[in-house]
């Protein structure tokens, strides 16, 4: 294969300088973190940049810590860092478990959460889970900071909605209370998942479901939720269990499934049902 085309690497001292560089280089420059997606696309000549701005040069972007009612995960934290973070394991174990299964051990050692979200690969595991967990992205630009929901950040396949000068600095994930149950499951045959499904249930004292959030990824340009599915997933646990197939159908409808080389729309629809049943059983402790 061809070597990578020439580029220069720049090391900003702080976020302000990174924003200046992004603005200055425009379309010829981009942020570079772990490179686990960017360099592959550049190697295949799908993307060309003359300037890579190494955001790892900015200190402190890899923190994972508790802040008020949130778990803050810095955009520069690698999948491995998040997987092994004691505070993440304690406060948001579903995130650690998901990260422990992203791609492979080499990608986890270098790839970052921020890079993953900004690259907006439709098969992203973190994006799907963070959508269900209602994570909020923090973006810092020349004129200040703004907060974006996952829906707002992920604009399309391989497309984020950050402005030219904006840097994703981290994600705030609301800390689950004692009545919240979360699960992330995926099905995978090749190197990327064919389906990811995240389920977050808020239970009441009797074990019934007060509120549900559910997201599926890999089967649409960006991960998606379905209002219809989420209302079917709320209510007395026994009746929700009766409605799982209906909820899965609503999710599949929302995703507008297509036949592609990963599988037929019918097959993906079937998998959504299988993973939703498994996730619900896990959240409701029905696995014995």
């Amino acid at each position: 294969m061809m070597p990578l085309r020439r580029f220069a690497i720049h090391r900003p001292a702080d976020l302000g300088e990174a924003a200046e560089m992004l603005d200055h280089y425009g379309d010829t420059g981009t942020l570079y973190a772990g490179g686990t997606e960017l360099l592959l696309a550049m190697r295949h000549d799908l993307l060309r940049y003359e300037h890579l701005i190494d955001i790892k040069a900015v200190a402190g972007l890899d923190r994972v810590e508790r802040r008020d009612g949130h778990l803050y995960i810095g955009a520069g934290a690698t999948h491995r860092t998040i997987e092994r973070s004691a505070v993440c394991r304690e406060l948001l174990p579903v995130m650690s478990e998901m990260e422990a299964n992203v791609a492979n051990v080499r990608v986890r050692a270098t790839g970052t959460l921020g890079g993953n979200l900004c690259f907006a690969e439709p098969h992203s595991d973190p994006a799907t889970l963070l959508l269900a967990l209602d994570g909020t992205a923090r973006a810092q630009g020349k004129s200040g900071e703004r907060m974006l929901s996952m829906d707002e950040l992920l604009a399309g396949a391989y497309e984020n909605s950050l402005a030219q000068d904006e840097v994703l600095t981290g994600v705030d994930v609301p800390l689950p209370g004692p009545s919240q149950r979360n699960a992330y499951l995926k099905f995978q045959v090749h190197e990327r998942p064919l389906l990811g499904l995240a389920l977050s249930l808020e239970l009441d004292d009797g074990g019934d479901i007060r509120e549900a959030r559910c997201a599926i990824g890999c089967v649409s340009p960006t991960p998606c939720r379905s209002e219809a599915a989420e209302s079917l997933l709320a209510g007395p646990a026994d009746s929700v269990e009766q409605r799982l197939q209906e909820a899965a159908a609503a999710l599949a409808d929302e995703a507008a499934l297509t036949d592609d080389r990963e599988g037929s729309a019918e097959y993906k629809r079937h998998l959504i049902g299988v993973l939703l049943h498994r996730a619900a059983r896990k959240c409701l402790n029905r696995d014995g």
Binding site: M1, I9, G35, L40, R43, H44, A103, N104, R106, E191
Partner: peptide, 25 residues
Amino acid sequence: EVQVCGACTVLVDALPVSSCTYLAY
């Protein structure tokens, strides 16, 4: 050359990386 196969694995500070798409820098 897409970080899938692992044939190019080397260790950097004891962690495995895909040296085919890991910048020498």
